[in-house]
């Protein structure tokens, strides 16, 4: 595993947070929501809550993992809301969350918001997660266009931690294979660097994966760096 975070070229602070621990098999990326106060606090709270929940768990069976992860993220959500209610400085703070847990031969990925996880394999790249934004929800019929305020943009977030007591969480799972690489990033990366470019850079530095987060961050900054940028990379190797 390798990861890095950077405030970008235009923002004053870094509201992204990252955690990863190869031994635990855990990687977490959170992007505090821009334009709202306390984004930095929200993202670090989300990471801390999920990290501690996993650390203190004794997960065994496959069918226990999904409800566990939903619960852990749910508790993080409630903690963020409670903090905002307790301290008006942080009222309304929010964050996205990508939480990866590698357990035996599977990956469990809890996803809320518009940060992304990609799968890279054999020089090919797929975005696994669905962005929780207005455009996607309209396309899938989960939102009716008539029900939206006129000024809502297509990329506006529909889900994030801290916005509502109820927050629906997607938990993906996949049987993993050696050679697969999972790349998790905040939107500061892929808003600047296209998927094809990301794929090309991963392919170019395939034999030195630890450099990839910094390389991708540098590329995003080179193209403008208009947001905080966080990249986490996890490669599946033969046991």
């Amino acid at each position: 595993m390798a990861g890095a975070t950077n405030k970008g070229r235009t923002r004053k602070t870094n509201q992204d947070s990252i955690f990863y621990d190869q031994q635990m098999g855990v990687g977490i990326v959170a992007d505090g929501i821009g334009g709202r106060k306390g984004g930095e606090v929200a993202s670090s709270m989300a990471v801390a809550h999920v990290r501690n929940a996993i650390k203190n768990s004794r997960l065994i069976r496959h069918e226990e993992v999904r409800p566990f992860m939903i619960n852990a993220v749910d508790n993080a959500n409630l903690a963020i809301i409670a903090r905002g209610e307790h301290d008006p400085t942080f009222a309304g703070m929010g964050t996205t969350l990508e939480s990866l847990l590698f357990l035996n031969d599977r990956l469990y990925l809890a996803h809320v918001g518009d940060s992304r996880t990609y799968l890279y394999f054999n020089a090919k790249l797929w975005q696994i997660t669905l962005d929780h934004n207005v455009q996607n929800f309209l396309e899938r019929g989960w939102l009716k266009s008539g029900s939206l305020p006129q000024d809502w943009k297509g990329q506006a977030l529909v889900r994030a931690l801290g916005l509502s007591v109820h927050c629906e969480i997607d938990v993906y799972h996949k049987v993993i294979k050696p050679g697969e690489i999972y790349l998790t990033a905040s939107d500061g990366l892929f808003d600047m660097v296209s998927d094809h470019e990301i794929c090309h850079l991963v392919k170019s530095y395939f034999n030195d994966l630890k450099k990839i987060p910094e390389i991708l961050i540098n590329e995003a900054n080179r193209k403008g760096g208009r947001d905080n940028i966080t990249v986490l990379i996890c490669k599946v190797v033969e046991d």
């Binding site: 799968l119 394999f121 054999n122 090919k124 797929w126 696994i128 669905l130 997607d170 938990v171 993906y172 799972h173 996949k174 697969e180």
Partner: peptide
């Protein structure tokens, strides 16, 4: 269902 991934 935005839950299970098969492949590649």
């Amino acid at each position: 269902n935005l839950e299970t991934i098969f492949g590649p």
